[in-house]
Amino acid sequence: MNSNPNSLFREGKKVWHTGNLQQAADLFFDVLEVDDQYHLAWNALGVVYSQAGEYEDADTCFKNALLLAPDNPVYLQNRGRNNRKLKILWELKSENMKKPAKISRMYYIVGFAVLALIVGVTLFLLLIH
C-alpha cells in the first residue's frame, strides 16, 4: 500500500469523481490511517458519506475537519449542507414515529359485529340452559 497521504488523497479524489464512493471512502480512510490530522481527507470523507446518505457519519467527519481547520469556509459550508439533510431525515423519522396507526372503519365495524355475536351467542346459551 502507498503510504504517501498526498498521493492517496489525489487517488481518492480521482476515484470519487468517477462515482465510486466506496473505493473513494476506502482511499480517504487510508490517508487518515497514515495521517489522522489530514483535514482535507476528513472533509472529503464527509462529502462521500453525505453523498451516500450517511449524514451522521458525514457530520463526524466534518467536525474532525473543522477541529483541524476551524475557519475553513468550505468545511463549514459542507457541514451546514449536510446538517440540513440530516435535519430533514430526523424530521421524517420523528413524523413516522409520532403518527398513530390508522385503523380502518371496517375493522371497527367487524370488531363490533364479532363482539355482538359473542355476546349474543353467550346470552343464547345462558337462556337455553
Rank of each mutant, 00 (worst) to 15 (best):
N4R: 09
S7C: 05
L8G: 12
R10E: 14
E11K: 12
G12K: 06
K14I: 05
H17V: 06
T18S: 15
T18E: 14
Q22W: 08
A25V: 14
D26V: 05
F28Y: 05
F28K: 02
F29I: 08
F29G: 15
D35A: 09
D35Q: 09
Y38K: 12
L40W: 02
W42A: 10
W42R: 10
A44L: 07
L45R: 15
L45G: 11
V48W: 03
V48E: 09
S50C: 06
S50H: 04
Q51C: 07
A52H: 04
A52K: 08
E54M: 04
D59N: 13
D59W: 02
T60F: 05
C61N: 12
C61G: 11
K63W: 03
A65N: 08
L68H: 02
A69R: 11
A69C: 02
A69D: 14
P70F: 01
P70Y: 00
P70H: 03
D71K: 04
D71A: 05
N72P: 01
P73N: 03
P73L: 01
P73R: 02
L76F: 05
N78E: 04
N78D: 05
N78K: 01
G80M: 06
R81N: 11
N82M: 03
N82D: 03
R84V: 12
W90M: 13
W90P: 00
E95P: 00
N96G: 09
M97W: 09
P100C: 05
A101M: 12
A101D: 13
S104P: 13
S104M: 02
R105M: 09
Y108N: 10
V110Y: 03
V110A: 11
A113S: 15
L117H: 06
I118S: 08
V119K: 01
V121G: 07
L123V: 14
I128C: 07
